[in-house]
Structure formats: structure tokens, C-alpha cells
Amino acid sequence: MNEITSAIQLIPLEHYIVLSVTLFSIGMMGVLFRRNIIAILMCLELMFNSANLLLAAFSAYHSDPSGQVFVFFIMIVAAAEVAVGLSIVVMMKRNVESVDINLLNRLKW
């Protein structure tokens, strides 16, 4: 099987780290940047995935499948989160006719 080359033999782990940090920062910037809740949720997905990528990379570099199982679990959580989050968006749209996050300003009460 050795003829199947793997990225891990060529690419240093640091590159994956930088890539995943970049994606995470972009996702976070998007969360702060946008007013549309749907877009914010998408940016959250982006952040999830950057963490996933890092987990998978570490898993490969360690030759340990546990990391990939963790990615699997994160997907589960992400799916549940999206389901609930989107239903909240639907409800909000139904109630205030908008998905603008600035309308959610009652958190001080």
C-alpha cells in the first residue's frame, strides 16, 4: 500500500493548522460582519468545518482513527444544531417578518 502517497508525507502539519485557522477566522469575521441570521449560521458551519479539518489532519498525522470519529461526532452535533437553528430562524421570520439579528435586542430582559 505504500505506493498510495498521502499528503501527510509531503505537506507539513503547520500548513493544515494555518489553513484551518484561516478558515476559522474568516468564519468568525463573518459572524461579526453579517446581519442576516442565515448567513451567520453558515459562518458557524464554516467554523465547525475548520475544526473538523484540523481534527482529521491530526488524526492522519498520528495514524489514529479516533480523531476521525470525533469529526463524525461533530457532524452529528452540527446537524442537530442546524436543525434547531433553522427552525428558530423560521419562527423568527414568522414572528417579526425578518431575519435581521439586530431585531433580537431583548436579551437584556
Partner: peptide, 13 residues
């Protein structure tokens, strides 16, 4: 404490 979510997000970050 304005209740503004965006601001809270900023604060969190």
C-alpha cells in the same frame, strides 16, 4: 447591556 446580539458577539470574541 443593550440586549444587542451583535454587540454581545463582539464582546464574546
Amino acid at each position: 447591556q443593550q440586549g444587542n446580539m451583535s454587540f454581545y458577539l463582539f464582546a464574546m470574541v
